Simulated scan of single mutants.
Amino acid sequence: MFHLMLAACLANDPTTCAERLLPAADSADREECQRRAEPIARDWLARHPRLKGGEARCVPTEDLPALAMQEIAGDLFFHQGAVDQLSRQNQGRIANLSFIVGDTVAVIDAGGSRAEGEALYAAIRKVTDKPISHLILTHMHPDHILGAEVFAEAGARIVASSRLPEAVARRADGWMISIPNQIGHLAFLGTQIAPVDQQLTAAMVIPLGPTELTVTPEPSGHTDNDLIVQDSESGALFTGDLVFRGLTPSLDGSLKGWLDWIAAGPPEPAPALIVPGHGPIAENWDEAVAPQQQYLQALRDTTRKAVANGMPLSQAIPAIVNMMKPWSEGWADFAATTARNAATAYSQIEWE
């Protein structure tokens, strides 16, 4: 297979340039790719008015830069993101990303930029040329969704919680300013937010031939728009950011709801492995959630103590972070994330 790579530069900074992969031009041979290149590049640039286009070339699959993937079960592939917050060093590539190959391909989360979405797409194409039928977004956060446009261009149907589009819309303008400054304008070049095609209010099943995926919206926990995905063939459970391992959990939903979700245990049948939103895969439920459960329980209890002592928010945040220090071991970015969590938890617990 051959793929169209288009040189593109920021219109307001012609020194910031990168090649962008345009999946709509994928072709069986170089000549067909070259024939399709001009109209596809022209249309793509029209949808990306902040960019100016340059040279286009067609390259074979083996020449595409791709994410490193691990096959964790038959036809199930996993990429572990950096266990860190967004930075120029990691280029925003901090979320775990996966894909499952059946009669078609289903992708779970798309990465934190157009560039990462392209690298994930390239990794898929190095495994199979089967069509990509679905992209499942586990929740709204930008490190999981900003690569989605690549898969929309490849023909995938984007599936997410019905609450995700509104949550993204409230934050999108801010992300388009803040994230390039965090990860670098070059790493962010060409990134746009893709619309959701299928908004879920109840569980749905995606048949892939030898396996099927059950996609289930969850009540408010990490966010108010979390999904989990169960793969029938491998027994894998993809939790998105309802499970953090190594990176301090971030609270952007309901603290009580998140703890209730953990306490309820995994869906049946019991998962054979658990793929979190951040950090390494776990082999059982307790391994996956016990440290996070302890952290969230401590956040609840220390916040209750601060509220009971009549502390205003400005005093409560540093006090909660200090009281939480016994639970800091093993969590990256503990102090900064816990301070943000304390503010969110305080706003919920003061009205208990």
Rank of each mutant, 00 (worst) to 15 (best):
M5H: 11
A8H: 04
L10F: 15
N12Y: 09
P14V: 13
T15H: 11
R36P: 03
R36T: 07
W44D: 12
R47G: 11
R50D: 15
E55S: 13
E71S: 05
D75L: 07
L76I: 01
F78L: 14
Q80T: 02
I94N: 10
L97W: 07
L97E: 08
S98T: 11
A115G: 11
E118G: 07
A122W: 06
K130M: 02
I132L: 08
T138L: 12
D143S: 14
I145D: 02
I145V: 15
L146C: 12
L146V: 00
A152W: 01
I158S: 03
S162Y: 01
R171I: 01
A172Q: 13
Q182R: 13
G184K: 03
L186Y: 10
Q199D: 01
T201G: 12
M204E: 08
P207I: 01
L208Y: 12
L213P: 09
S220R: 10
H222R: 10
L227E: 06
V229Y: 00
E233C: 08
S234K: 00
D241F: 10
G257Q: 04
L259Y: 00
D260I: 02
A264I: 00
E268S: 15
L273F: 05
D286M: 07
V289W: 05
T302L: 09
G310C: 05
A316G: 05
A316Q: 07
I317G: 00
P318Y: 10
M324P: 04
M324H: 04
P326F: 05
G330L: 03
A332I: 00
D333G: 01
A342V: 04
T344L: 11
T344W: 14
T344R: 12
S347Q: 13
W351Y: 14
